[in-house]
Design a protein around this nucleic acid. Structure first.
Lengths: 404, 404
DNA sequence: TTTATTTTGTCAAATTGATAGAAAAAATAA
DNA sequence: TTATTTTTTCTATCAATTTGACAAAATAAA
């Protein structure tokens, strides 16, 4: 059992030092202030297990850098009334873009996920160049509309539909659903240069998962799976407090799990992929709608609202597939919870979920309550998730910032 | 998107300090010495990004504690010839137990995975008490047989068949395949006290995955999935350099992914689970063998070796399921590689793998070479993996040891 | 053979965060 | 009014990595 193969670097082979520990502690303290609103320094000390003095120092530095501010609070109980620390609301903003084959949706929000600006525009062509120029012009739009906020921009998050082709092989040709080159390191570097800010990219499902993790109900969990029900079907996994993107950024492609080898061909090259049955694309196909039509999602929402039998029938038909998907994710990953989201209204997702009852048994006897939740969904959810990706990369603690 | 839910602790909310940084660096240096055999201090410094002086200090301390030793090496190239650092071969040993419903397999090995002692014994009954007493008597056997090594024992790893019921709900009653109470914290604490050494537990698939990670071909990967083909079917996931056990230690239960809701009932309570078709249990069923019979695996190996048509037919029959399983794991986790192991001989596993050709397409264009490998397999693989679990917990760097 | 270069080993001092302890301040409870 | 509790601030200490300089030992080049 001892073949000498190449051995890769990871946290297993990276040392750390005082400086990295400091940045980690700063990020941790900031994360707590961000996620738990105004909070006393003593409580921060208890949560982090850092000494009170250390928290004092860190908060002092954050304050002098203008990131947080103190405000007094009327005492509640015995003892000296402590000052509360909170984020300076107008200190930092991020931009998020949901880049689609058809359109680009943009959002600007603060560190708490409050949206301060948004915009959407169709895209001339499904090419990296069209996406780049659209994004750049929207950045300029935001800067023109909110010059004060624009000065406090710290990063840009991009969410594009996966899967990404990061392998050596050339583009498969048959696949028109991916911006294979949009996500390339070269293009990202170019964009970053043009924007003048850090730029991070995730696929749409991962971005939405980060949205839940950073701003939403995912904050309550260290490990959860987010299911993105969109034109395709994807998932984003947050494991042990961090997004797990996969070795080639393609983890969570549950839409391309083959459930029937004899099923219809999929753009990915296999046949009978789950998303050929369970996705808005599949529903459009059933309804005779054109998925690339801009208003198709709104049309489905309207039909669903008026109780259209074709839509409700489809929901009933895919119930076994919902069960299969849920069972598969839970058995494989054993997450604390599943969060269901997507580009359609929450009521639709709830109906989809309700139809799947009774859910398959789980192995451990954990309670059913909160097993699956409906997350943030709708047209701007992924763009918001993209801002979360920027927050996560630039503000949140992570192992990579702790090591050398 | 701002509901105030309880927020959990993780590395996102844990600070660190000098002391933790030190233990991390020590573990990192030791990990490198362990996995890369004799190695020069300068090279360690380059790998870890720690300064040469720091590595000097750490190695010095490890040496004075008797964990490593230096030996000269003839110079190869210009410059002062450096001393090489290596593990003291007889410094540390761990014990691993593969606890089964039928028997217990024990192994003792050093930090490099070299087996120095092994033993196996049937179990009187499939109860936690029987397992405990069997383990304790085997520990005594080892201590009696190798008193010198026994003095250097640093930990005990246990591998038991999952799934574990860690939820609040009471035992399902229908399930005779799990030692529900054997894995309880109380029982582990009791065992730890009785043995007088740290005791860690993993399910068999996770243990085998750690075996690959610590000693085997898994060392070459930061993220891989290990498939354990045994009486049941399970998987162990190593993600970003660490085992991902799941929220309730039940990640990787691919054997209980339902592939046919109308299929036969499974002990887990669902119907049509994958392992009802793809496992040694299923093969035994096909062959009319009794799975609980001690020699059944050996019997299958013999039949396979002589080209028995029933066995070969079964292998051909399950080929679609192999493809389905591989596709599912790859699409969901996007690992660097898959490693196939189990309690049967490697030739059988290779045949199983060969029959699955052609494999399903992947999303990224990564090369096919090394996509799936045959790992350590056979009767002692899981017990060896159990020792790896002890090594991993007590020697290897991990995020938990870096934080407060 | 001599000289230059390169790499390793060692020493002492500097740096830098986290931490400990004490004392002051400001509130409530008794 | 007094005691208690909690927060804040100050100063000094501690413990790890890092820096820089220099000696030692080998090869490569002149």
């Amino acid at each position: 059992m001892n073949d000498s193969a190449p051995i890769l670097a990871s946290f297993r082979t990276s040392g750390t030092n005082l400086t990295r520990a400091k940045t980690h502690n700063h990020r941790v303290v900031l994360e707590i202030i961000r996620t738990r609103g105004p909070i006393g320094r003593t409580e921060i000390s208890e949560i982090t297990s850092l000494s009170r003095q250390t928290v004092q120092n860190i908060v002092g530095e954050l304050e002098s850098r203008g990131i947080v501010e103190m405000h007094a609070q009327k005492a509640r109980g015995r003892g000296h009334p402590g000052m509360m620390v909170k984020l300076k609301p107008d200190h930092a903003y991020s931009l998020g873009f949901h880049v689609d084959r058809l359109s680009v949706t943009a959002i600007a929000c603060d560190l708490l996920g409050s949206i301060v600006w948004q915009s959407a525009a169709p895209m001339a062509a499904a090419t990296p160049e069209a996406a780049n120029s659209r994004i750049l012009s929207m950045v300029e739009d935001f800067r023109a509309a909110h010059p004060a906020m624009a000065k406090c921009l710290f990063g840009v998050g991009l969410a594009a539909p996966g899967p990404f082709e990061t392998g050596a092989q050339t583009s498969s040709g048959t696949d028109a659903t991916t911006f294979s080159d949009f996500g390339s390191p070269e293009n990202l570097a170019e964009l970053q240069l043009a924007v003048g800010l850090p730029v991070v990219l995730q696929n749409d499902a991962s971005a939405a998962a980060l949205g839940e993790h950073v701003y939403g109900i995912g904050r309550s969990f260290n490990s959860f799976a987010f299911i993105q029900f969109g034109m395709g079907l994807g998932a984003g996994f947050v494991l042990n407090g961090a997004l797990y993107p996969g070795a080639s950024k393609n983890a969570g492609e549950i839409g391309h799990v083959v459930i029937d080898p004899n099923g219809p061909a999929c753009s990915c090259g296999n046949t009978g992929c789950l998303e050929r049955y369970l996705s808005l694309n599949a529903l459009c196909e059933r309804l005779g709608l054109e998925p690339t039509e801009p208003g198709s999602v709104a049309r489905i929402e309207a039909l669903f609202a008026e109780g259209d039998p074709a839509v409700l029938g489809w929901i009933a038909d895919v119930a076994p597939l919902m069960r299969q998907m849920i069972n598969m994710i839970e058995m494989m990953l054993d997450p604390e919870a599943l969060i269901l989201g997507g580009i359609i209204c929450p009521e639709f997702l709830q109906a989809l979920l309700d139809s799947a009852a009774p859910l398959p048994r789980r192995l451990d006897g954990s309670p059913e309550e909160g097993r699956i939740r409906i997350g943030t969904s709708g047209a701007t959810a992924v763009a918001l998730g993209a801002t979360a990706a920027a927050v996560d990369a630039l503000y949140a603690p992570s192992v990579s910032h702790l090591l050398l």
